[in-house]
Each structure stands twice: as structure tokens, then as C-alpha cells.
Design a protein around this nucleic acid. Sequence first.
DNA 1: TTTGTAATTAACCATATGGTTAAATTAAAC
DNA 2: GTTTAATTTAACCATATGGTTAATTACAAA
Lengths: 117, 117
Amino acid sequence: MVNYKAELNAIFMALGHPARRAMLARLGKGEATVSDLAQPLDMSLPAVTKHLKVLERAKLISRSKNAQWRPCQLQEAPLNLASDWIEDQRKVWESRLDRLDNYLHTLHANSKKGAKK
Amino acid sequence: MVNYKAELNAIFMALGHPARRAMLARLGKGEATVSDLAQPLDMSLPAVTKHLKVLERAKLISRSKNAQWRPCQLQEAPLNLASDWIEDQRKVWESRLDRLDNYLHTLHANSKKGAKK
DNA sequence: TTTGTAATTAACCATATGGTTAAATTAAAC
DNA sequence: GTTTAATTTAACCATATGGTTAATTACAAA
């Protein structure tokens, strides 16, 4: 039921840094160059390059070539894997809560039967 | 529109390790002790204690006391924060795709008008 | 072919992660 | 009060992260 895919390690880890989430948020609005992505971030370009490698490793972005620019594109699939894992997780605890709810109702019903005796 | 909450750093980072995801999956089925959680994992108890601290820091679990046991409980809220971030993200790129779709339809309509001239 | 711009690589550094074993703590049970 | 079980802390180690500056590469434009 629950997803143990190894890709999730790289995906969740990549999402764990605010600069990388900011980059993904920017890329959600469309392709962007390295400098575009760096502009709102308070760090050097080499630092940005490193973050991009982390995002690439997780396949959260892909890259292309256009003259001296290396534009980045968002890839949705890994984000789907991540939210699927959370959804599977939610199903597990929701079914547990349902069983608990059921059990409490049974208890309540039995206590009323007991009172009538 | 997009969520920049600092808690997300700790949450996503915590989800980035398979042992921690396994622990959360186990806790989805109900409270468990440290040894319960350690049992299927190929690592020492101190290592498990450390992973539990990471999960606690992210508020993904809470803990209680029962004699010499320290049972752990899943906390759903942080998982909701995480999936909300992904959902917000999805909204951003879906609206972009909608605009692109719209644009392509307009282009197509205009090309037909052009052909008629 | 020189110059300018975009981006990456190299080298370095500090701190965090993820693991270990051995010792200490906590609390029940004998 | 001694023993036993569950868990944590301490000390240590290797590797990964996240940043820097300086040098290098890639490419267009003059």
C-alpha cells in the first residue's frame, strides 16, 4: 500500500530547502534561466548551480540549451510521486481512524444494551 | 499563492529518508514504541532515536510515556502542510498550462481566419 | 579575433546527517 | 536493593550539504 520508491528520497530531500522550493515555484510559471532563478535568491551563482543539480538529480527539473543560456523546466512527475506517497499515508491513518470510530460506536451501543439489563 | 513556511524545510527534509518514511508508515497504523519502530529497520537503536528526533523536530510525531516505553504517535498536520505546498504548486503550473492551451487555440482560430482571406 | 555575458567547475570551508559502540538513565519486577 | 528491559546520551567517524571566491568554459556579438 505504502510507496517505498527510492526516488522519493531525492525528491523529498530536494524539497527540503527553501531556495529549491522557491525555484520550483518560479518554474511553475514557466521556463527560466539560471540567472532568472538566482535573481530573487540571496546567494552566489555557483550555489544556485548546486541547487539545480539537486533538483535535476530528483528529476524535478529538466534543462535545455539556448545559446549561452541553460533554461530549466519544471517536471511534474516527481511532485506527483511525492503527493501520492502522502496520499497513501493519509489512507492508512484514515482507515485506522475509521476502525477506531467504529469501535467506539460499538462500545457505546453495548453500554446502552448493558444499561437496559 | 505559494507557501514559504519555514516548517516545510524540516518536514520535507524529514520525509527524505526511507527509514523515517517507514516509521511514519508504521505509525499510520497506530502508536508504536521505539523498539517496535526499530524492529524492521537495519540499524542500531541510537540511530533510530536520532531519526525520531528529526521527526519530532518536524512535528510529524509526538511522544508520550508509559513505564519505560516512549510510544510515538503520528501527527497529521505537517503532512497536510506538505501536500498543501505541492497542491499550490500544482495550481500554479496548471493555470500556466491552461493559458498555454488557450493561446494555442487562439493561434489556431486566427490561422483559419487567415486562410479564408 | 577580441570582448562580454551566462553558467559551470575547482578548491576550499563549516556544519549537518547518518551511522557506530559504550556508558548512562529510567522505571518495572524480583 | 539488585536485576532486567527500554531508551537515551556521549563520543566518535565518514560523508553530504550548503555556502564562498577564483578560474574556466561556452557562446554571441562587435
